[in-house]
Amino acid sequence: MADALLDIDRLDVTYQIHDAAGRTVRRLKALANISLALSRGEAIGVVGESGSGKSTLARAIVGLVSPSSGHIRIDGRDLPRRRGAAARHGIQMIFQDHTSTLNPFQTVGRILDEVLALWRPQAERDERRAQALGLLDKVGLGADALERYPHAFSGGQRQRISIARALATTPRLLICDEPTSALDVSIQAQILDLFAALKAEGYALLFISHNLAVVNRIAERIIVMQGGRIVEQGATSATIAAPVHPYTRQLIASAPRLSDRGALLRSVAALPDHPKKTGAT
């Protein structure tokens, strides 16, 4: 796709399995012939069971896993297979486990300032503080959060802090790896509305989730993965309403309480709306 922000072309990832002596005893193909394109302001949902390759795809895009073949391009520029933090500029990953990704011994202000100082070394401390306040405001948290530690916040608030930290690097692409699965339904809805607001600002989202209702709410298109391959893709609502591949039908049928596709769509509509700002979630 000519105007794509992210363009993945025939991507393969192969893991080498070693014995106790460090010798390669077998190779495991985790991704095979993956191609997709993602534009600014668009969200693609990636679904599949554990081991389908979803997280490997995310880690390959962000540079934590080296592809064995294929291309990953940002704005038409090929990303090197092995790359450091500088080459990952413009791409950030938001993880499911926000607890382990936030340093419990640092205040939120310090957590954000470390990132801002790294990516904007020319900025003075007062300027970085103002930027941190702006990030907190964007994710629906107040200035009082700066001096507090992560343990003082709820799960939903900690995920907001993780998102603010990711946004501190001014990325264009957010890789979201199960970012709402550890949250209850009402808080999920608030975080999803936050992602929708970011998408409206032009951020591109690759949204990985096992929850089809969540994907249907946030993503225009869906990719279904099985065994490291894409087995079906298309418009999210159409794919859920009329899946073609047997594996997609199996995923929908096995979703807890959502075996009826009408129930799946109704569950999305039933998610509560997100207040613009709250200090209690």
Rank of each mutant, 00 (worst) to 15 (best):
F95T: 08
L118G: 01
I61H: 00
V244T: 06
S259M: 00
V25E: 13
A204Y: 08
G140Y: 06
L57H: 02
T107Y: 01
T236Q: 05
Y149P: 01
R261S: 03
V244I: 00
A145G: 12
K277C: 06
A200S: 14
T239Q: 03
I222V: 15
A60R: 03
G22D: 10
M93T: 03
V224H: 02
Q190C: 10
R249M: 07
P256N: 09
P179T: 08
H210I: 02
D273R: 13
L183Y: 03
D193M: 09
R128E: 09
L116T: 09
A168K: 00
L133D: 12
S68D: 12
I191V: 15
I175V: 15
V25N: 13
R257E: 11
P256Q: 06
L116I: 14
T169Y: 00
R128D: 07
S55Y: 09
L206V: 08
P104M: 11
R148C: 04
D273N: 05
P256A: 10
G227K: 09
G76Q: 12
D19V: 13
A255Q: 12
R81V: 11
L167I: 11
A200Y: 02
A269H: 06
G109C: 12
Q16G: 12
V46W: 08
P150R: 10
P243R: 00
I240Q: 00
F153W: 04
I208C: 05
F195L: 15
S162Y: 01
I218M: 13
G156R: 01
R23A: 15
I72A: 03
D19A: 05
S209P: 04
L183W: 07
G90H: 01
D126M: 03
V231Y: 09
E42R: 12
Q159N: 07
R10K: 15
V115W: 05
D260G: 03
A197L: 13
T56Q: 01
G45W: 04
N103K: 02
R125G: 01
I223Q: 04
P67T: 03
G202W: 11
I8P: 05
A60W: 10
A280D: 14
S52F: 04
V108E: 02
V185N: 06
A123N: 04
G202V: 14
Q96I: 04
N33H: 14
D9G: 02
T107R: 15
S181Y: 02
L64E: 04
E42Y: 09
G155M: 10
D260P: 01
